[in-house]
Amino acid sequence: NCLEGLIFVITGVLESIERDEAKSLIERYGGKVTGNVSKKTNYLVMGRDSGQSKSDKAAALGTKIIDEDGLLNLI
């Protein structure tokens, strides 16, 4: 459970895995996936064609922004 207690938001199109697979992977390792960035969000996983508003909010809140490889490296 290397992601225990961590909260993730996924945005954009992921290249190597589907969004549902990424969500399942995060949950399997103890993390939680939500739909919107908040002060409780630990990581924003940004894929291709992701919206600017979520990354702006993450930056404003100090949320770590990672890509798909960054997510896989956490596991």
Rank of each mutant, 00 (worst) to 15 (best):
N1T: 06
C2Y: 11
L3F: 10
L3N: 05
E4P: 00
E4G: 01
E4Q: 11
E4K: 12
L6N: 08
L6Y: 06
I7E: 15
I7M: 10
I7S: 14
F8N: 05
V9G: 07
I10F: 12
I10T: 04
V13R: 15
V13K: 15
V13L: 09
L14M: 12
E15N: 09
E15S: 13
S16N: 13
E18S: 15
E18T: 15
D20S: 13
E21Q: 10
E21T: 09
E21F: 04
A22K: 02
A22R: 03
K23F: 03
S24M: 13
L25Y: 02
I26P: 00
E27M: 07
E27C: 05
R28T: 09
R28P: 02
Y29W: 04
Y29F: 13
T34V: 15
G35A: 14
V37K: 04
V37G: 01
S38V: 01
S38W: 00
K39Y: 07
T41D: 02
T41S: 05
T41P: 02
T41C: 07
Y43N: 02
L44F: 04
L44R: 02
V45P: 02
V45Q: 00
M46V: 14
M46G: 03
M46K: 13
R48V: 06
R48A: 07
D49S: 11
S50R: 09
G51L: 13
G51V: 13
G51I: 13
Q52T: 12
Q52V: 11
S53K: 14
S53A: 13
S53N: 12
S55I: 15
S55H: 14
D56S: 12
K57L: 12
K57E: 12
A58G: 07
A59G: 07
A59I: 14
A60W: 05
G62P: 04
G62F: 01
G62E: 04
G62H: 07
T63R: 01
K64N: 08
K64G: 04
E68D: 05
E68L: 14
D69Y: 11
G70N: 06
L71T: 02
L71N: 01
L72Q: 06
N73I: 02
L74A: 02
I75W: 02
